[in-house]
Design a protein around this nucleic acid. Structure first.
Length: 428
RNA sequence: GUGGUCGUAGCUCAGUUGGUUAGAGCGCCAGGUUGUGGCCCUGGAGGUCGGGGGUUCAAGACCCCUCGAUCACCCCA
């Protein structure tokens, strides 16, 4: 046994799955199952995959997400070598926008629909549904201001969950306004909250200075009560944002998606403007947020573009998705069957096994055999354990006859099949 | 960063008010069947009882420290 183990907040994904403490890590085939559904749905939206590096310049993330956000101020895995500051990406939106600008994807004309699946890193204390290396998938629609793009983003996320059979989630929606209306709202909010300042928690009091809108997110009951009479962002929206928000809602309604209009929904990343949304599982625990996203027209400028590149997107957690699947009993995916397992007896048969297995595999037959030189009983048991459909038995007699005994493991029936007919007999 | 809970076999867990060689089920290996899986029977391997220190004639049990895991706060996917 190794004295090493995976770093806290990270985990291995094994063929059979396992429990890591109280949390269960699904088998790799469940991850593949979920990823296949994601790829399928993304395909329906005409989105193509983008893969960006896990390592990014720190500056990209801090400028993109915002210096004062928790992600940047305390949750980044960052280091430097020489003059370069590196960070393990904590999310993928800023890297995608970086790639879009770097490769001048706007010059291709039209709108880019890009999706991704991959690991992200945040130096948080791990807990259920929250890891230091976790996996996100998401869609970014870049180059469109049309409210249909916002609605489409939400619809796409929802379609992924539905494709996998999940239906118990809630969509919360808000508009954060634009760079004009938001400051006006912030002022009003500060004016409203300041008289209560001495009753606030320390975090909230700090936020009053740095990022007052995040106080809206508070879960402290006393503060929520205090906020009951607070000014509502919706009342401060500029006409265009208001119009845009109405359109997004109308589009969602037009495809029968129900949502909660939540004026207190604020996202933890600074780059959002106008549309912000969150999809929450109804059956998960504290970490029930399945996906989040919104419009981030201003991110492009933050990253150095000369003009606004409008964009909307969502990011979703693979771990949360799988947790939700698990909670809904939707991860009962059987492992793939072996078509044939070769049982060999005697040295001559043992060496015959290798080229025969190879030849069957070339014919598209999934073949396994014992590599430990074990007894026939043990080989049969192994075949059974691997759920092989057929067992090919070869010993001295079969080598002489040039025909193997082929046993149908489900029927328990057995017949003799000439070596040169094994491939064709096993394929039908 | 803060708080709670928990560390005994590969896994899930028993282990009396401290008392000899630490147990069960499942899994694994072998035999029962000299060439036939599942079911059954028999046997076996596998443990520095997370680590260190202390109390005691005696510690898996009690005390302290430490490491780890986990849940929650915070935050987010």
């Amino acid at each position: 046994m190794s004295s090493f183990k995976s770093i806290s907040g990270t985990f291995d994904i094994l063929p059979e799955g396992h429990t890591s403490g109280g949390d269960s890590i699904a088998p790799s085939r469940i991850w593949q199952h979920a990823e296949a559904a994601i790829r399928k749905v993304m395909g329906m939206y005409g989105a193509e995959e983008i893969r960006t590096p896990i390592l990014e310049p720190t500056e990209l993330i801090s400028r993109g997400i915002g210096q004062l956000t928790d992600i940047v101020s305390k949750e980044m895995f960052a280091f430097e070598r020489g003059d370069t500051h590196y960070v393990l990406r904590p999310e993928v939106t800023a890297p995608v926008m970086r790639a879009y600008q770097q490769h001048h994807l706007d010059q291709k004309g039209g709108v880019q629909r890009l999706f991704y699946i991959g690991p992200c890193f945040r130096a948080e204390r791990p807990q259920k549904g929250r890891y230091r290396q976790f996996h996100q998938f998401g869609l970014e629609i870049i180059g469109a201001t049309d409210a249909r793009a916002d609605a489409e983003t939400i619809a796409c996320a929802v379609d992924v969950y539905r494709e996998l059979g999940l239906n118990d989630f809630t969509i919360r929606l808000n508009s954060l306004g634009d760079s004009e209306s938001r400051p006006r709202y912030k002022e009003a909010l500060i004016a409203y909250i300041t008289p209560f300042a001495d009753q606030l928690s320390e975090v909230s009091r700090n936020r009053l200075e740095t990022n007052p809108m995040r106080i809206l997110d508070t879960k402290i009951e006393k503060e929520r009560e205090m906020l009951r009479g607070a000014p509502i962002l919706a009342d401060f929206l500029d006409d265009e944002s208001r119009q845009h928000h109405e359109e997004v809602k109308a589009h969602l309604t037009s495809i029968g998606l129900t949502f909660q209009d939540d004026p207190f929904l604020v996202r933890g990343l600074d780059y959002y403007s106008r549309t912000a949304f969150e999809i929450e599982s109804d059956s998960l625990g504290a970490q029930g947020s399945l996906a989040g996203g919104g419009r981030y027209d201003l991110l492009s400028l933050e990253l150095g573009a000369k003009q606004i590149i409008p964009a909307v997107g969502f990011a979703a957690g693979m771990e949360r998705l799988i947790m939700a699947l698990d909670a809904a009993n939707l991860i009962d995916i059987p492992s793939p069957r072996l078509d044939a397992f070769i049982v060999a007896l005697g040295d001559a048969a043992l060496s015959w096994t290798f080229p025969m297995a190879h030849s069957l595999r070339e014919n598209g037959i999934k073949v396994g055999y014992d590599l430990k030189g074990r007894s026939m009983k043990a080989q049969m048991r192994e075949a059974s354990r691997q759920n092989a459909k057929f067992v090919i038995i070869v010993g001295e007699d079969e080598l002489v006859a040039g025909a193997a005994q082929v046993k149908d493991m489900d029927q328990s029936s057995q017949r003799s099949v000439p070596f040169d007919q094994l491939a064709s007999q096993l394929t039908n």
